[in-house]
Write a protein that binds this DNA or RNA. Structure first.
Lengths: 214, 214
DNA sequence: CTGCTTTTTGCTCGCATGAGCAAAAGGTAG
DNA sequence: CTACCTTTTGCTCATGCGAGCAAAAAGCAG
């Protein structure tokens, strides 16, 4: 293993010392990985399949550009998170009240499914498939937790401002997360799944569930 | 391969011609499998781990009593389903109105988690880990679907009887399924998870979400 | 030479198989 | 009933085979 490759290892570092071509390769492989994971699931997403999807001759390429499967998965999660955040955040922050933001969160999540149909299935697969094993998994499990926590906090603030009714924010957020994931899973193997419609339905559902009782 | 063993193959058959010892062994192995799957996830639930959990000296034992991993997983799912049905059905059917039954469905599901903490995590793992591959998976994916469909039908009837408000039953049922699964997942790695409390919270949440708007 | 790519090789792990062994069940003859 | 033999049943162990990951070796371009 060459010295530079060890520079690729461990995501937390800067890792900015990358060639253009190397960055392009990594992006190409990550995209292929997302595709494969979404299609066949995390368990069956082998280097061989990913290489084939990326149009590479063999798995050596992946081993060269990534420190290992962990490194690749970390990149996959980071990429999906990055895209999702870029897409959803402005759409959420465009609204002022907590209920509107909650709705925007849900609907933009489903709208994102139209833009990048493979992203959400892939990340769900990786997160459920790794189970907190493998250094990287612990890392982005923590990332997911903070994301959930911030959502919980947002809901709690909405409650304190009297914009929501009375309920346990933690249960609510987990339920929401699970509901979205379940519909994402359904969308993967149902070709004519109307994401926008289901997004609206789910937003309505959680709107009713969180409304202040008059 | 002995003649009897081929009788073990393929679940759909009667397969009632089993010795006491054989039935006991299968049950023992299935229990161990449930335990292991719930603890380390489907992907890492190898014969080796299951054998160790069951106190067996080697994996050959498992291969002897089951036609393959498929056969074992089928049995795992069947066992969990059987227990869950026996537990939940009477608690649901004890109520008359659709909203009460929906609540009973949710709360009895969480109550079941106290009785058999490993069962629900295990089945979720198997169902998400197999992804419709492997003859058996398709089989109990179908079983799950019919279960979901019957729930959808129950909700639809409740709507027609004016006991629920207006919403898409399919979205609602998937959301509910996902919400339960998400909380099951959380319960697995959170030692002091109050299943009853979360069950009540979730039941409240879906009660508000499905109520007829006055 | 250096950076990048492809080919080749090594190693691990999980599942399945089949031979072989021990014990129980069953059958038969004295 | 008992002693012996045969068949069935339950289990262990060694081995094969395939898949997947990783890294080294070899080829190639700038």
């Amino acid at each position: 293993m060459r010295a530079k490759s060890s520079g690729n290892k461990q995501g937390p570092g800067p890792a900015a010392d990358r060639t253009f071509i190397e960055a392009a390769r990594r992006a190409q492989i990550v995209d292929a990985a997302i595709e494969v994971i979404a299609e066949v699931g995390y368990a069956k997403a082998s280097f061989t399949r990913i290489a084939r999807q990326a149009g590479l001759s063999s798995t050596g390429m992946i081993s060269y550009h990534f420190a290992g499967k962990d490194d690749l998965m970390r990149e996959v999660v980071a990429e999906v998170m990055r895209v999702a955040d870029a897409y959803m955040r402005p759409r959420i922050e465009a609204h002022a009240t907590a209920p509107e933001r909650l709705r925007a969160h849900i609907e933009s999540n489903f709208a994102l499914m139209n833009e990048h149909p493979k992203h959400l299935p892939a990340i769900v697969e990786v997160l459920t498939g790794t189970r907190g094993e493998s250094s990287s998994a612990r890392e982005f499990t923590a990332a997911t937790d903070t994301m959930m926590n911030s959502l919980v906090e947002a809901v709690r603030r909405g409650q304190e401002a009297g914009e929501f009714g009375e309920f346990d924010p933690v249960t609510m957020v987990y339920a929401l997360r699970g509901a979205i994931d379940a519909l994402v899973a359904r969308a993967t193997h149902d070709p004519d799944f109307d994401a926008a419609a289901h997004g609206r339905q789910l937003a309505d559902l959680f709107d009713r569930a969180t409304r202040r009782t008059p």
